[in-house]
């Protein structure tokens, strides 16, 4: 991600007083990051190689080094595979939907014909700043099979009610929908910035050539938004891989583990059953998945351009 660092000619020119001041100013931030991020990061790696559990919590000497056992056990655990699958469904369902809504909304907001753009942008963005736990509580009622307004609206359209959170087949979709609702405004705002950066002259030239709006979208807007799409999709992917509060509040991971995400499993293993060694291994698998997904998207996009 970070290219090879070219030598910084400024670095050697600093006066001693300047260098001392720099380190003085850096110390609080670097100290905090070292103590509360770097140290736990290393400790997490070690933790994932031990059988650290509730007995070790009482006395750390009870923890033993078990090598890759935690990881191997995960690979043999059907529940882990189910949770992995659930999480992938969240991502594969949520990312395209977010991108579609965000791009569609951004095109509308950016359109010359649009009125009250500022107001619309504010409305689309509002869910982003809401508290996830609170809106999960709200959505839980909206999804209620009998009284929930979503099923009431389906009824008006003549459609049968859906047991959104009780039916394993629908629960993942219901939770994804909440996640998308809460985050598409963020992507939308970034898309609007991307659209503003496209020179108007390109469209004017295409219009002179008699290009239809659809062709302009396909051959000017979409390709030029490439970097934006890449950024937004990586951001959305990373967010959905870490989904936690939505299932925690709405379904507790049920029904039948249908909505248990990797992070929820890690939380339960770590902080309910105190299997910290096992939970740390889950966390590292999540890390590897996120890293892998990011790299794959990077490579796919690079090949296309």
């Amino acid at each position: 991600m970070t290219p090879a660092v070219p030598p910084d000619i400024d670095e050697t020119r600093g006066l001693p007083a300047e260098r001392r001041a720099a380190w003085a100013l850096l110390t609080p931030a670097l100290g905090a990051i070292g103590l509360f991020f770097a140290l736990p990061l290393l400790a997490a790696l070690l933790l994932s190689l031990t059988d650290f559990d509730i007995y070790a919590l009482a006395d750390p000497r009870n923890a033993r080094f078990v090598g890759a056992d935690n990881y191997l056990r995960l690979l043999r655990d059907p529940l882990f595979w189910k949770v992995l699958r659930n999480t992938l469904v969240f991502v594969l369902l949520g990312v395209p939907l977010t991108l579609l809504l965000a791009l569609g909304g951004a095109l509308l907001v950016h359109s010359r014909l649009a009125r009250m753009r500022g107001l619309f942008r504010t409305v689309f963005f509002a869910p982003v700043v809401t508290t996830l736990v609170a809106v999960a509580v709200v959505f839980r009622y909206l999804y209620h099979p009998r009284y929930g307004l979503i099923n009431q609206m389906l009824g008006v359209l003549g459609l049968p009610p859906i047991d959104w959170l009780g039916d394993p087949a629908w629960a993942t979709a219901a939770i994804t929908l909440l996640a998308v609702w809460r985050s598409f405004g963020y992507a939308l705002v970034i898309y609007v910035v991307g659209l503003q950066a496209i020179p108007v002259a390109l469209y004017e030239a295409a219009e002179l050539d008699g290009a239809s709006p659809w062709r302009m979208l396909r051959h000017i807007t979409w390709p030029l938004l490439g970097p934006t799409t890449r950024f937004v999709s990586v951001l959305t992917t990373v967010g959905l891989f870490q989904i936690f509060a939505e299932p925690y509040v709405m379904t507790r991971g049920g029904p039948l583990y249908a909505t248990t995400s990797i992070t929820l499993l890690m939380y339960q293993q770590g902080f309910r059953w105190w299997n910290l060694g096992n939970a740390a291994a889950i966390a590292f698998v999540l890390f590897a998945l996120i890293l892998g997904a990011t790299l794959v998207q990077e490579l796919l996009q690079r090949r296309r351009t």
């Binding site: 991020f37 891989f241 770590g270 966390a283 890390f287």
Partner: peptide, 21 residues
């Protein structure tokens, strides 16, 4: 550059040892 590289680490990874700390 090292600091920026740490952005790829999800918070889930550090949360368990941070609790012990």
């Amino acid at each position: 550059a090292l600091l920026l590289a740490t952005l790829v680490v999800p918070p889930q990874v550090t949360v368990l040892p941070l609790f012990l700390e």
